[in-house]
Nucleic acid binder design. Structure first.
Lengths: 243, 243
DNA sequence: TTTCGTCGGTGACGAAAGTCACGGTCCGCC
DNA sequence: GGCGGACCGTGACTTTCGTCACCGACGAAA
């Protein structure tokens, strides 16, 4: 079996050249591999190619063929869909330790969405064939992938609900609260109006106006072009208004 | 091992009481189980509970706990999300032989959406624990589930794109073409304006007006309250207008 | 045939979102 | 300090949606 030979040569390497701490740590922590033994995690970790992206760079575009599983070692990324006229809508955010592009690994399609770095990122790319082979040898892994994909699918359903039945005002409130959570702890929102608009699938002006309303109503404060949350409770109420 | 005892008792039944033709056929045809041997398919088939639903009945509601995998033996269902104010948006359609509710099987959450029968249906319900146990014994199955969930995830991304960037007019054109495909062959669309509105996440009046426009433009004909497609090409063009 | 319930058409209106345009503000850099 | 680029605020306008209201058309059942 040629496969076996190939795997063995790849898998013996790590004992000769030990894995970087970040690489080891990443594969230890990411949810997909928690059921494996440390040795097995090293095996899969050794297969990955390390890549780095600066904030703003895009990892891949929707509609292009899938290279493999992108495991996020550090930093965070956003998953988004673009329209030809330059608008965008954000489908989700993933931060280390996590992964993106699980879906096209199994249905042999192209990437369904674009992914770009929010912060500087280190990504470990496990090639499609390597990952699928690994899955065959470790049947627990696809189960974990399913759990992850399930979570993402739920997020998507939430987005659909918000876009279909909700207003920009509501989605903005949600986005502000989420952004606050992402920027762990600080009430400051490190996003421009334009960036918020792209997350929401709308345009800058609409975000500006809605933020102005929020400020007038005392829900947010804008000092020196910095958005900060003034009344989390009120915003939360706005966010989960039932349509 | 208690598990083994349990499974054995369940699995011996079929040889004593043979499975119904529909049941056998369903599990032979549905994509999740194509990699199994006929005997294995019989095992899983034997675990299922048969249920029937009349058109319009709902199989389960979003937010309620997941019982198991719903395999569609005959008929078709729609997957949808509702708003408290009575609006709906359709996330997808599944027809026999297929299945719904794969996701909550693996992430232990509630159903993410509601599913109701479009036509009279026979459903085979495989209880969650049974299915998960079966997955552990047959690692090919989760892979197939992943492929299916992947397809659904792509559909969802498509819906998001359509509602975020598109107009009702465009989505209506898409829905008409899709409905035509579902009603295999006939140009007649067996849907009321209200039903179309619910599929699109809008309201009846808006659908009526847009249909009237389509008719004025010669894309559809409405005779005796029956919508039929008059100019498929033009509709298709309308449907995939880039935003 | 009458009746009643469902479905469809349409006008009037208001609210929200998107577009265009332009001027103002902040901030880093020469 | 002044320049320039990115970012923000806002007015004016259009279009699309959704809502309300009401009437008319159709068809099944009495």
């Amino acid at each position: 079996m040629l496969h076996m030979r190939y795997i063995e040569t790849r898998l013996q390497k790590p004992s000769e050249s030990p894995l970087s701490p970040l690489r080891r740590e990443t594969f230890d922590k990411t949810s997909l591999f928690t059921t494996l033994t440390p040795e097995e995690r090293q095996q899969i970790a050794a297969l990955a190619v390390e890549k780095t992206y600066a904030a703003g760079e895009t990892l891949f575009f929707e509609g292009t063929p899938c290279e493999g599983l992108h495991v996020i070692g550090s930093g965070s990324v956003k998953i988004l869909k673009t329209s030809p006229s330059g608008r965008e809508i954000m489908l989700g955010v993933e931060s280390a330790p996590s992964s993106v592009a699980e879906v096209p690994l199994f249905d042999n399609g192209d990437y369904p969405a674009t992914v770009t770095a929010l912060k500087d990122c280190v990504i470990f790319l496990v090639r499609k064939e390597d990952f699928r082979r690994f899955c065959r040898q470790h049947p627990e892994v696809p189960i974990k992938v399913l759990a992850l994909v399930g979570r993402r699918l739920r997020q998507l359903v939430g987005v659909i609900e918000a876009v279909t039945f909700g207003s920009v005002r509501q989605r903005l409130a949600q986005a502000l609260l989420q952004a606050e959570r992402e920027s762990d702890g600080s009430v400051q929102i490190p996003l421009t109006h334009e960036e918020l608009a792209l997350r929401l699938g709308t345009v800058r002006e609409v975000v500006s106006r809605n933020l102005a309303r929020f400020q007038a109503e005392g829900m947010v404060r804008i000092v020196k072009r910095q958005i900060e949350i003034a009344d989390r409770g009120a915003l939360q109420g706005e966010a989960d208004t039932e349509y």
